[in-house]
Design a protein around this nucleic acid. Sequence first.
RNA 1: GGGCCCGUAGCUUAGCUAGGUAGAGCGCCCGGCUCUUAACCGGGUGGUCUUGGGUUCGAAUCCCAUCGGGCUCGCCA
Length: 527
Amino acid sequence: MHWVDVYAEKLLELGSNHIIESGTGISGQPHLGSAGDIIYADGIHKKIIEMGGSSRAIWAMDDMDGLRKVPAQLPKEFEQYIGQPAFKLPCPDGCCDSFVEHFTSPFLEELARADVKPEAVSVAQMYIDGKYDEVVRIALEKASEIRVIFEDISGSVREEDWLPFFPICQNCGKILSTKAYEFDGRKVKYRCRGGIAGKADIPGCGHEGEVGIREGKLPWRVEWAARWSHLGVTCEPMGKDLTAAGGTYETSSIICEQLFGSKAPMPVPYEFIVMSGKKLGKSIGRVLTFGDMAKIVTPEISKYFFFRSQPTAHKNIDFEFAIPKLAEDYENAERVFFGDTSNVPEKEIEDIKRSYELSQISGMPDAPGQASYSHLLSIIQTNLDLEGNVDWDGVLKTLARTDNITQLDERTMAKGNAVKTWLDTTAPEDVKFAIQKEMPADIELNDDERKFITELAGAISKVNWEAGLIHDAIYETSQACELKAGQCFKALYKIFLGKNRGPRLGFLLASLDRDFVVGRIEEATKI
RNA sequence: GGGCCCGUAGCUUAGCUAGGUAGAGCGCCCGGCUCUUAACCGGGUGGUCUUGGGUUCGAAUCCCAUCGGGCUCGCCA
């Protein structure tokens, strides 16, 4: 059984109403891993409903959290906001109402296009609206119990007067720099004495004051427990960092059960996504969000990436070399789904079909997609104009010949655009080819190849300029020279592309100017 | 020091949540093809499933231990 269904069934054994939560810190653009968190939750959520249970998928944005450091893409001026809660920050580009909206709305739109539509909940808004009043009050009143739990689970000792609450300083606006020390049942007294975020110190302003319980937040582990209890969360995917013993999940579970009297949700631990050891430098650009991935391989294939293996399996995404392979895996799953189960072990058929199904975004297609990613990769490059734009009519002509496709349907266009995006962004030079306007400087031809080229120079000038005839002329010349055709094709690729391989030569050359081709071949006889 | 995850062919890996003779892709080798969609077709090479125990009629799979890798907790989202 597919792991998504295993979780859904386990949950339904526990009860029929479920809240599947996911959550993301808003300290910049949410990355691919955050999207995975929500995609996993969405898969389980949908399965529960499909099996007759009721379920809500909730996505909590942690916008009450203080800004720890300035993300790379933000202007330096944002340093002034370090320590302040995210929900109060302005939009970095002035295009949205707020910092949070700037990052979350594109993220949610990208996911929505993949048919992943959780109910978004602002944590800050829950505090401000008083939704957390009760849990905050319980936490403050039972501060000593929480302190004991922290000590038992993780061995960390808090100060005598420690309170599980971080007020927003009324003077400097920071939330990472305050220390609450007294709760009188209504107000919390605090000192803005400075704090720590990662390795950096967050200086405080020294202000002393008191705030209401809606003007600050609980510490993470307490807040998580409070949220579970308040929303009735029954299941939540989480990164493996949170599931370590003595870690966040364990502590929060105990707080949830002991203080709030609620059962902790079923965790769905998952591995982090690794980007093939490559740094996310300028060469790879911004390619680390779900939207970027969806543009490079389509939303369906992006979802397939998450569903095809166990959430705990290591996930290595390589935006350079592994993209066609990922697409091929998906296309293979598609064939399996539509009944071609050759090459697939019996045992895996069910899960492969299910992974494919989970990856769809607008119902089940009634037939496999027609053109493969790899094929499009090749034919799109043979149909680029000088500005690098795709000649879709040319692509269609090729597809008509190779795949019997009479029109570019939505799926084919989506895949074609994805291929083009990949070529324009992270595709490695190895998979790219382009007609060399000048004879490539550093190529070498051996005696056989030179002989072939010389023969061909005579033959090619007499050929009618049609793909099939050009191809025949090349083949016949190779036979006449008693050479392997493969070697001869290679020689031509070298002089036209500067590479050893390429797309079908007859069609490639036919699309070029005849004089140019003949001229290049004649030029090559002098190498 | 504690915990979690991973370890299967040269490489990438499936199978572990059904215990039933280890499967695939890439690569490589041979053969074929009026010979190329960075292909295709046929055949082949290649794994003591990290290692050692245990349970079992039977273990890659379950249990215990071991080694190696990654991550994480002990300050802190």
